[in-house]
Amino acid sequence: MNSKSTKFIFWTTTIIIFLFEGVMPALTSQTEMAKEGIRHLGYPDYFGVMLTVFKVLGALVLIIPQVPQRLKEWAYAGFAFDFIAAFVSNWAVDGLSPMLALPIIFLGILLVSNIYYHKLQNLKTV
């Protein structure tokens, strides 16, 4: 696979994560629907605020090229934990439902972003 394809796949998947985990929470976290979603899962209101702050910061870390690699790895790990926790929380509260697919789909997108991030790093060192 050439450098152009690697960059395209990395940036496409990373922008999807940025929009879903950074922009969307920043714009919607204080809506009543978002607050009710957090309460429905049994979490206190402050958890939603904390989660939003970490999601926005993590999304910025992934999208800004100058951020050190170690910090990016923490952001990738944080988002992986977030998607796994979302899956488990929804499963525990609502049982098997079509909504369980969403965090798994985004976990897959995140994994592709991480894989192609490392491919880009390897291309830079060669």
Rank of each mutant, 00 (worst) to 15 (best):
M99S: 12
E36S: 15
I9F: 10
V53G: 08
V56Y: 03
I104N: 10
S97I: 02
M99H: 09
T28E: 05
K124D: 13
N122Y: 11
A85L: 12
Y117T: 07
Q69S: 15
I17P: 00
M99Q: 12
P44L: 12
Y43K: 14
H118I: 02
F10Y: 15
L71G: 06
F20I: 07
M50Q: 10
K4Q: 12
L51V: 11
G108E: 06
I16G: 08
K4C: 01
T12G: 00
I9W: 07
G78A: 09
Q66V: 07
P25Y: 13
E21V: 00
R39T: 12
G37S: 14
I84P: 04
W11N: 08
Y117H: 11
A86L: 02
T12R: 09
G42K: 04
E32C: 10
S29L: 00
V67N: 11
V112R: 09
G58P: 01
F10I: 11
P44I: 10
E32Q: 14
I105E: 10
V126E: 15
D45W: 04
M50P: 00
F79G: 01
M24T: 04
M33F: 15
P25Q: 10
Y43S: 14
N114G: 13
V67R: 07
L27A: 08
T31W: 02
L19F: 14
M50Y: 08
L100M: 05
F87Y: 13
L110A: 05
D45Y: 07
P103G: 13
M1C: 09
K4N: 09
F106A: 03
K35D: 01
L96N: 11
L71F: 09
D82C: 04
F54Q: 12
E73Q: 15
N114P: 00
